[in-house]
Design a protein around this nucleic acid. Structure first.
Lengths: 331, 331
DNA sequence: TTGGCAAATTTAACCCCTTAAATAAAATAA
DNA sequence: TTATTTTATTTAAGGGGTTAAATTTGCCAA
């Protein structure tokens, strides 16, 4: 038997409205009834039905988090950031992923907003189109995009262009002039901005970008790296460094294959990855890489959206976070 | 303006009850009104309010997933398994983590069940106590525990004892007699069953377990492995193999430090990890390890709970899954 | 004692949808 | 044609809360 306001009301000899007001700490309740009601509520082990409350208040106290793919470690880390802050916040997180779904992010979002009466939505995706994001902006539910800047929507993101610039520039200052770049076509990895940062660094040092040492792989696994190295090694003039925006695993594949072929890393070939996954420290030599503040992004996102929901903020806010360049042994 | 059943009803010249019945595909509706209502619903872009529906039906169509710690890759993989199946299932996943929370799993569960009127709960934890789990069994909400067997509750789990047995026995058949074992005290890693499997394997080959080569580390990082190796190397007779239920990262630490000290892996020291994390393939030599079918566990869990919710199953079910022994180069 | 005001409580409508029971309309049987 | 079923629709009562407005109670000043 679930106990309701009414049950308490009857036992306390008051109306359920009164009980409701006590439970919600509304003013103008005599100390006597307040105590009595609270006591009975405790005795009966009362829990408010948040569904019913949600219906009445038109608030669900929950935030929807839409992710493209829970398999991505990036997404998971951001989610962690969201959750760890969320701890002190009275919002429930409803998790939705769109991978393999016929619905696109924007459709899912609409459904969430309308059906579930969710209070706010966090979308973690670096690859939604502007057009899709318009739907978010139009719906009246507060929403925020993580991992990508969007003009007409709150956003939290990392300056990947600068991160790539830093990495490339570092290689240049180390004397490298022929720096290969490995991007990926894999869905969900925002490789383009990084490529732009790479280009900018080259340009700023008057180095011409060589199109023959730019590769675009299909996935982001070790095998991709292995394959790339095998293509790379025969190119003349052979690059002395590789920057791998496609991700650390690809970079690790390159390191592995280079070593197998007797190429010394970093002496013969310097390598910089992207992401700073745990394995980056495991490979020998340990991988120099670019780290994104994922937890922080999640943290900002949840705080921004809660501020929005609770009306403490209005207007579009953007938070740009810097990447961190982690120098290890592969450069 | 959100559109409700009533809006449709008015436009269609019927009652909202009728509209409701159309929306829910109830019988005894004339084809004429059905079409008319559906048409208007579409025109008005109607979405049912699931909150209100939930109140009326006492069903929320959502499943709560309680995890101790979203930082655990084990948990995340299981979650992935849950979500990927969930795709075809009309349940929403509400995610709750208990780390750092004053509430224990069972309290959180109670709250979920009562406040949120959740239809079912999946708890992912290998370390809740029996006592806590009793609370789950008592509440009338279907619930299931993943990663641990529990007699009076549905459960999906892996036979870690057997996994450890297999690993240890493999080392024994390779000729090893002095096999060290590294467990961990880290919260959330069920190291004890694994240790038992190790012991059983030794026993079944009449090998006496040496307490001087059994170590219990505090965490599960690479540093722990490095530290352990340094203690291990001076022990006589020096073990020729190490089984590391504490996890792959610890094993990797051992591999790294062994190499640094000029000890050849696997010739001088064979190493078996636990978990098969991505880095296991990165370390050189690649790590032999024990893999748990995490996605499958999630998959079973969500299917079992949905069957329970929808009344297709009753009675307590257990699903035990086998581990998989992955042989690589470190043995 | 009466009037006036603030404080405490209740009334009643509403949130949006579902569903059993009642009623109306249409179809069939007698 | 009337009685009986069957089919379609409506009525009305929830589900469990919230909240503006109305009412009652208590207190104090006049």
């Amino acid at each position: 038997m679930t106990v309701t306001l009414k049950d308490i009301a009857i036992r306390a000899g008051v109306t359920s409205a009164t009980v409701s007001m006590v439970i919600n700490n509304k003013p103008n309740i005599s100390e006597t009834t307040r105590k009595k009601v609270l006591k009975i509520a405790k005795e009966l082990n009362y829990y408010p039905n948040v569904i019913a409350r949600g219906l009445a208040t038109k608030k669900s106290n929950s935030i929807g988090v839409i992710v493209p793919n829970l398999a991505s470690s990036f997404v998971v880390r951001v989610l962690q950031g969201i959750k760890s802050t969320n701890r002190d916040i009275e919002y429930t997180v409803q998790l939705f992923d769109t991978i393999g779904q016929k619905e696109r992010e924007s459709q899912l979002f609409q459904r969430l907003a309308r059906e579930r009466r969710i209070d706010g939505v966090i979308l973690i995706s670096s690859t939604v189109t502007e057009e899709e994001l318009n739907v978010f902006a139009e719906e009246s539910v507060p929403s925020i995009i993580v991992a990508r800047r969007c003009e007409h929507l709150d956003s939290v993101y990392v300056n990947n262009e600068q991160g790539a610039f830093d990495a490339t520039e570092y290689l240049i200052t180390k004397g490298h002039r022929n720096i290969a770049c490995i991007t990926t076509r894999k869905q969900g990895i925002p490789t383009e901005e990084r490529y732009n940062g790479y280009l900018r660094a080259l340009r700023s040092h008057q180095i011409e970008a060589r199109s023959d040492i730019l590769f675009d792989v299909n996935d982001d696994g070790m095998e991709d790296g292995i394959e790339i190295f095998d293509r790379l090694k025969n190119i003349v003039p052979r690059p002395t460094a590789v920057f791998v925006p496609a991700g650390d695993m690809v970079a690790i594949g390159i390191v592995k294959e280079a070593k197998r072929e007797g190429i010394k890393v970093p002496d013969d070939l310097a390598i910089v990855g992207y992401d700073d996954i745990p394995a980056a420290e495991v490979i020998e030599p340990a991988l120099t890489t670019v780290r994104q503040p994922k937890l922080e992004m999640g943290d900002y996102a949840i705080n921004m959206i809660v501020d929005k929901i609770e009306g403490r903020e209005s207007g579009i806010k953007h938070k740009e976070l810097p990447t961190k360049f982690i120098i290890r042994e592969s450069t």
